[in-house]
Design a protein around this nucleic acid. Structure first.
Length: 574
RNA sequence: CGGGGCGUGGCGCAGCCUGGCUAGCGCGCCUGCUUUGGGAGCAGGAAGUCGGAGGUUCGAAUCCUCUCGCCCCGACCA
């Protein structure tokens, strides 16, 4: 490909609207352009990179027996009403009406459609297992699109679905996907952690996320350096460093005028540091006031709250509701002697004595509180967010908490969709049984962006070989010397013939411009052909990643590039 | 949805508070000449409904009202 024949609108200035590095570079290198919030057009270079990722994904899906489909993006609302998600999902779904006022939506995921196909076509356990996948556009009306294509409202996803007659089959399909995903990310050059995750509204029993550590990420992942375990902060259960309490004394109420916060009480004479306080939070759970107790310096995790209570219908109580439930307003709330309200307590409070907590009497607190002595009917659960310094629940080693990009997510759905949508097959006993499903996704553009987050320097993108939109860029220093041009063309033809995706920078630009652009768009190998070298019969081969330069004889150029290419290509697994 | 910020030639910005000639600057773009190993120089040139609507005023990019869009923080996130 000649540079003059491919549209690569590079930008000198940093786009004002971009914050994330990958976002800036995707715009600057002419990979994408924004159409609306969270909606991006792929330009030729961006499309080439995406296609590389898609090809890897496709190969690995086929390796585990996946069969490629291509489903509609326009879905009848009826289908989503069957699964129940038409009403479950809120504003995140793009909905529309056809001319007859029928409900439709744009697919945000494809469980419903794949399940409908399976329901219509699968009759017998003998047809199972099936692994079905597609690479298709999804639409999600995100509340806050951000960071370029990292969180878009329209994006391409590889989604796949497994159909099995039993849960043992699901486990196999799930493990196959985990292995395929591991290979996909590795081939893309990404170190992806597999992370225990909350299933959310997706339903199902188990889910694993594939995370890439990056400041541009939006998820927090708790990582244990000892046993290699990792979990999403939403789910991670860790052990707080032990606190040594003094001997228990008798419960005592004391006045705390104007003290409303943990922090204020920590600085109040006669108060206590945050880790010696009990934080009492009141939520309305399924219309019932409910207490949640945490150590003063710990944060409530609402995903865990949902898990503990078994419902997603909850909200923080208003001050008025606190008043009517406990007799005091926020700032003076506590659980001492409370018995008519369900109380969930975070594990970190177990066995603690000499604590301070609200007295359910405005401007008063209790001190010398012994948790197990003074609080009744506690339901012990993990409620808090893990924090740095906590110990791994498995091996005890201190965990770290890192920002990560969610590249993939795999779910054991179980019977969630087969039951609601009536997908059954006959088993070997001739009995109708619901099909056991799994669902698995990888965001294509997000993966491209994550690669850029991981592979760039001050001058631009540094593509790994496997995803580079071109392998080699030829940079002629001058187009004036006809003999040099002829030699350049000969090398170009040779590289193309050798099967290398080669970009010939035939633009009549000054060398500096060409070098800058070549670095910016991140092509792994650059071949510089200029008068200086040609005088000596040499051309210069430069590696983008290492900046390593070698002079190679003109006559060996194609061969040498090929050798270098083979080395770069084999550095990543195939 | 709460909070903050920003919309001025293709890109990056100034001007706005304190209203006033033909709305500036850098980059890019076009033409010509010179140049050509890390974003060239000179000369000439094209290009802007100042996001939109309404209002105040003799006069609005500038003041007021409404509205649309985009970015960031948070909430949310199959």
């Amino acid at each position: 490909m000649r540079w003059s024949q491919i549209f690569i609108p590079t930008l000198r200035d940093e786009p004002a609207d971009a914050e994330a590095i990958s976002h800036k570079l995707m715009l600057r290198a002419g990979l994408v352009r924004q159409l609306a919030a969270g909606v991006y057009s792929k330009l030729p270079l961006g499309l080439r990179a995406s296609r590389k990722v898609e090809a890897i994904v496709r190969e690995e899906m086929e390796r585990i027996g996946g069969q490629e489909f291509h489903l509609p993006v326009l879905h009848p609302g009826e289908l989503w009403k069957e699964s129940g998600r038409w009403s479950q999902i809120g504003e995140e779904m793009f909905r529309l009406k056809d001319r007859r006022q029928g409900d439709y939506c744009l697919g945000m995921t494809h469980e419903e459609v794949f399940t409908a196909i399976a329901r219509d076509e699968l009759r017998s356990y003998r047809q199972l297992p099936q692994i079905w996948f597609q690479i298709q556009t999804k639409f999600r009306d995100e509340a806050r699109p951000k960071s370029g294509v990292l969180r878009g409202r329209e994006f391409v996803m590889k989604d796949s679905y497994t159909f099995d007659v039993d849960f043992a089959g699901l486990d196999i399909g799930f493990d196959k996907h985990a292995e395929a995903y591991r290979r996909i990310f590795e081939r893309c050059g990404i170190k992806a952690l597999s992370v225990q995750a909350a299933s959310g509204a997706m339903g199902g029993s188990e889910s694993v996320e594939f995370m890439s550590v990056s400041d541009a990420g939006e998820d927090w992942t708790v990582i244990c350096p000892g046993c290699d375990a990792a979990a999403n902060l939403e789910k991670a259960v860790t052990v707080a460093p032990e606190v040594v309490d003094p001997d228990a004394e008798a419960l005592e109420k004391f006045p705390t005028p104007g003290i409303r916060t943990i922090d204020a009480l920590a600085h109040f004479a006669g108060g206590a540091p945050a880790e010696r306080q009990i934080k009492t939070l009141v939520y309305v759970v399924d219309d019932e006031p409910t207490l949640f107790l945490l150590r003063g310096d710990h944060e409530l995790n609402e995903v865990k709250l949902a898990e503990a209570t078994g419902t997603t219908t909850f909200r923080a109580a208003t001050p008025e509701e606190c008043q009517s439930a406990l007799g005091a307003r926020p700032g003076s709330l506590g659980a001492v002697s409370v018995s008519n309200i369900p109380i969930y307590a975070d594990d970190a409070l177990k066995g603690r004595v000499e604590m301070v907590t609200g007295a359910n009497d405005d401007d008063h607190h209790f001190r010398h509180v012994s948790v197990e002595r003074d609080l009744q009917d506690l339901r012990w659960v993990s409620l808090r967010n893990a924090v740095e310094g906590d110990g791994c629940a498995a091996c005890g080693k201190e965990v770290s908490i890192k920002k990560t990009i969610e590249l993939g997510h795999i779910f054991k759905l179980g019977l969630r969709y087969s039951e609601s949508m009536n997908l059954t097959v006959l088993n070997d006993q001739g009995k109708d049984v619901p099909v056991v499903m799994g669902s698995y996704g990888i965001g294509i553009e997000r993966l491209v962006a994550a690669v850029i987050e991981a592979y760039h320097d001050d001058n631009g993108i540094v593509w790994p070989w496997s995803i580079a939109p071109f392998h080699v860029v030829i940079t002629p220093i001058s187009l004036k010397d006809e003999a040099a041009v002829e030699k350049t063309e000969a090398i170009y033809d040779g590289l193309v013939a050798a099967g290398l995706e080669t970009l010939l920078d035939d633009r009549n630009e000054r060398p500096g411009v060409k070098f800058k652009d070549a670095d910016l768009i991140g092509i792994p190998l650059r071949l510089v052909i200029g008068p200086k070298g040609l005088e000596r019969g040499m051309v210069e081969l430069v590696e983008r990643g290492t900046s390593e330069k070698v002079d190679v004889p003109y006559g060996e150029a194609v061969e040498q590039v090929r050798a270098r290419a083979d080395r770069l290509a084999s550095a990543a697994p195939r």
